[in-house]
Design a protein around this nucleic acid. Structure first.
Lengths: 199, 199
DNA sequence: ACCTGAACACCGTTCAAGT
DNA sequence: ACCTGAACACCGTTCAAGT
């Protein structure tokens, strides 16, 4: 797809790509600017031509993560255009699937920029986009009388938080084996959502 | 309360205490073994007499965090001995309160040991204890017919996950201002739980 | 405009040595 | 048993210099 014209050329994206790979293969603790530079075949100070500091590279990687997540949500929404309930359940499944397939990206997405989040407009934009997608699903469900009426954004936070929390606990290994032997993460999340729908 | 007999004596606890303070004052990014040692007034290699590596110190700090959280949950449970619904709601409030008052400890509790979690028995024990407290509240609510019957541990994961997720998103700054202007975190969490109770 | 190399401060960890 | 100091590898960041 992409022309490999870096070394000279598309270094910025090469660095992000290298970062994503290190995250996937070696985990969050091994991600360093120097290693990313090495992997891209440039000197260890070259990244500073494209990112002001390590935080800035992390912001770019997180942004990439949110883009993928947003795409997965979008695909779930479009695959079930006339079935709000299915949109909600499959959207949540897509969220679970993304998190489990990209554990370290998922972690960095929800644990880095923090206060300085606002310093990275691209990050803010795409993370808000994901949230809006969730709100839209909730709103559609409300219109279809599947979810009780009320402020959609507050309900969206509650539903999103529910899905997010179960996954976060699972990824950190906080959910006991005895529970996971009974039900898979996917099943637990689905059960949680069906409970939210019923009321 | 504690006799200040470290320098020589209770260095292990002094290091944990120093770590907690750095976490509270300077945040997760500034926590280093060398700084902890400096703060405790010992050489930068002294910690290795008590902790095998940085992970091990972090495990001890996390354990301390879970002890505090567990204590807060216990207090909420005991304050409302004959009112299961109140136990559930106040337990969740205690969770929120703890997280907001100890943001960086909360973060480190849910983002460090990971795979190697099992290497730290004290950590495993106290984190499981907290989970059991949640299960017990759920079970009590079931007996009082406030929560639908079913496997208490699975339901506990769902409820715990819900509370945890909303807080985690909030701490990472992922919840938009427009939502937080309408409702406080405390209110959102309460609304979430009441929704779970109703069904 | 983009990249390199030397330099500095800081970190985790090991090891031989001190008490 | 507990602690120190020197040493090593690795890291983020700055800066003067090269193309």
């Amino acid at each position: 797809m992409k022309s490999k014209t870096y070394h000279h050329g598309d270094l910025k994206n090469a660095l992000i790509k290298a970062g994503v790979e290190i995250l996937a293969k070696e985990g969050i603790g091994k991600l360093s600017l120097r290693k990313v530079a090495l992997k891209a075949g440039v000197s260890h100070t070259a990244p500073y031509s494209h990112f002001s500091d390590k935080q800035s590279l992390i912001a770019a990687i997180s942004t990439e993560g949110f883009q993928r997540l947003s795409k997965a949500l979008d695909s779930a929404i479009k695959s079930h255009a006339n079935n709000p309930k299915k949109q909600l359940i499959e959207g949540a499944q897509a969220y679970v699937k993304f998190a489990l397939a990209n554990k370290d990206i998922f972690k960095i997405m929800f644990s880095s920029a923090l206060e300085k989040e606002k310093d990275y407009p691209a990050f803010v934009e795409v993370s808000q986009k994901a949230f809006i997608q969730v709100i839209d699903i909730v709103r559609t469900c409300q219109e279809a009388n599947i979810i009780k009426s009320g402020e959609a954004d507050v309900l969206a936070v509650i539903i999103w938080g529910q899905v997010h929390g179960i996954i976060a606990l699972a990824i950190e290994g906080q959910i006991s084996h005895t529970v996971l032997e009974k039900k898979s993460l996917q099943e637990i999340v689905t059960q949680a959502i069906e409970q939210a729908i019923k009321s």
